[in-house]
Design a protein around this nucleic acid. Structure first.
Lengths: 372, 372
DNA sequence: ATGAAAGCGCTAACAA
DNA sequence: TTGTTAGCGCTTTCAT
């Protein structure tokens, strides 16, 4: 049985309010009493029950973060930064992985809603919007880690378009015209569209025809990288360059090329989207587009807390209005709430940030070899 | 302003108790009413407030997990599995990184205590025991991911001793006698002791003298791996084999050896503790000791929930006793509690599990070259 | 089948 | 400076 504030009050022979003042370091209490109470609390291993206080305060000090898979380095690093920032604000973070399943995503969000979390950061699997509608009808501030445009919501994400665009332009500038793109299978899974568009834009800008043959499906495992590399080599017209949209697959690719006697970059240039795995130590050092993972974590948390504060201020205002209303006409609450709802919906999202990504040229890309 | 059960009750024209029955799918309610209420709840975007219900139930549906750094793949994978299991049990998980700071570790635990989490999994930084004492005086079930022996607490972890032992024996069996060990700097940071002991045991078992020169401090970054590899080569009597206690540093090491013209394994054998980074695709494929990360996550969560259930049952019993006591003599509560406390302390921890690790021999280790 | 009422551990306004 | 009281939104027991 957990010891409560009343127990402490009883032992100290004071009221529970007094205990509270001591624990909260409130001014109106004598120092000796405070000390005594603190002492008793410590002896009895007592801490305030956040649950109860949150209930009374109608808030929580936790934020939720929903990602596809927390074991992916990108998300792991993100979560870590989010946690850091949350810590500064005195918040905890609860994580949920959706495993790329929109249903689980929705479920996670519902449960966070049930917990009445103060805010949610969500990296959606698809560009679907079910959860957006749900959250919009809620007063929970949320931030999407993905480019959900035209939906009047706040988001912050990497400039995925720019990533493949830069990688492609770089290869073109080295004389490559047949550039393969290894990308995850499901066209609906988030940055697919932008990655493909960046690649296509670069091609068309330089008058290079787009060839669907060069788009290779590659799951996010080293084993699939190995297998995909094999497919690259069997392409009818073998490409002189390859862009991989995942860093995880790179060891597999490099090995396959090595086994097949393909030299990087002499025979084939390799450029990678995302720069996670110590690429600057690889042999050869791997050219990659660096994603500012930690920055995304930090910024998204900062933005979320900004929204949380705004929301809280708004609620205070609403509450004040509400009180007045109650005094005047007690019957119209429903309408009043609808009014507020409408106001919320119209508020334009202010945060629309695309974090810049950076191409880091290393050894795995080079001049296109002459081909027959 | 979040909509509450009362709002729904008001709109539906019933009591809040009735709304509850509908939402909980309790039997004693007419189907039409249930439907109507569910409908209204959905329209108003209402869900039960876990906070309030937890308060009433005196439990929470969240467990805490404290790790040193959630962005480390080992922990990221662990957390993911813990989350999976928790999900099955209907629990959320809140994560805290201690950043290798015992103070932050304690702080995290205190905050989890404040949240009245149902249980805690903690991967401690050091073998210090402050948090153990704290948690023991709490009724929160907890499980330590580290080998804290002789403390009468439950733990589950990898058999770190066995990891270096196996790696060392393997190298010895290939004729190596000068085997360097690259290990993180702080002797007090958790598995240091066991890694060192495993290494030393293997050596002494085969009558190979222990040479402190061969123990190299190496932080857990590729850059430090690069630097450490350089130191290996500058050792007075150059070793013929190297065991790295971190997988993260391996790309840095391999590059340095490559740059210095050292061939692996012909000139130097390399064996790694932990098998994370697609080593089977590296060139050469890297021999490593595989840690069952996901298994640790899964098992620890399972164990924790077992403890949570036991704790809950015990609390029920206590409560019943408590009631009886109250009827008989209302004054002796304090003493009674002390009695329970004593009983708790004596309960022996039941869980003491060391997960087996597996040496996977690949290409980076081989027969020791003859040396002058 | 439905509702009233007390209580979970805290907060905050108001008394004393 | 200290205590009293009425909630916060839910659960549970007991009436109706």
């Amino acid at each position: 049985m957990s010891v409560t504030i009343k127990d402490i009050a009883r032992i100290a022979g004071v009221s529970h309010t007094t205990v509270l003042k001591a624990l909260h370091n409130k001014p109106k209490i004598s120092p000796q009493l405070r000390e005594k109470i603190l002492q008793i609390a410590k002896e009895n291993n007592y801490t305030l029950n956040t649950n109860a206080s949150n209930l009374a305060l109608k808030t929580t000090n936790v934020i939720g973060i929903v990602v596809t898979d927390i074991s992916i380095p990108l998300f792991a690093e993100m979560v870590r930064m989010v946690e850091r920032v949350a810590d500064r604000y005195g918040y905890r973070v609860v994580v949920s992985s959706s495993d790329y399943d929109p249903d689980r995503e929705m479920e996670a969000i519902c449960r966070l809603h049930q917990m009445r979390v103060a805010g949610i950061i969500i990296a959606p699997t698809y560009e679907e919007t079910e959860f957006v509608d749900y959250l919009k009808n809620t007063d929970i501030p949320f931030l999407v880690l993905g480019r959900l445009e035209g939906m009047d919501i706040d988001y912050i994400t990497f400039d995925d378009f720019s990533a493949t665009y830069k990688a492609t332009v770089h290869l073109i500038s080295q004389g490559h015209t047949r550039i393969a793109l290894a990308i995850h299978g499901d066209k609906d899974i988030y940055p697919y569209r932008y990655w493909l568009e960046g690649y296509q834009s670069a091609l068309s800008e330089y008058g290079i025809p787009y060839d669907e043959e060069l788009i290779l499906t590659c799951k996010v495992t080293p084993a699939d990288g190995y297998e995909t590399a094999g497919r690259v080599l069997k392409l009818e017209q073998e490409p002189t360059a390859l862009i991989s949209c995942s860093d995880m697959v790179v060891p597999g690719m490099l090995r396959k090329f090595y086994e097949e006697g393909k030299r990087i970059p002499q025979d084939l240039s390799l450029s990678v989207i995302q720069d996670e795995l110590a690429f600057e130590y690889y042999i050869p050092k791997v050219t990659a587009v660096r994603y500012p993972n930690e920055k995304l974590g930090r910024l998204s948390a900062e933005f979320l807390f900004r929204k949380i504060q705004e929301e809280q201020e708004e609620q205070q205002k609403d509450q004040e209005e509400h009180q007045k209303d109650q005094e005047e006409h007690r019957e119209q609450e429903d309408q009043e709430e609808q009014g507020q709802q409408a106001r919320r919906e119209q508020e334009p999202g202010i945060i629309r940030e695309l974090l810049e990504v950076e191409l880091i040229e290393r050894e795995s890309t080079g001049k296109a070899a002459a081909r027959t």
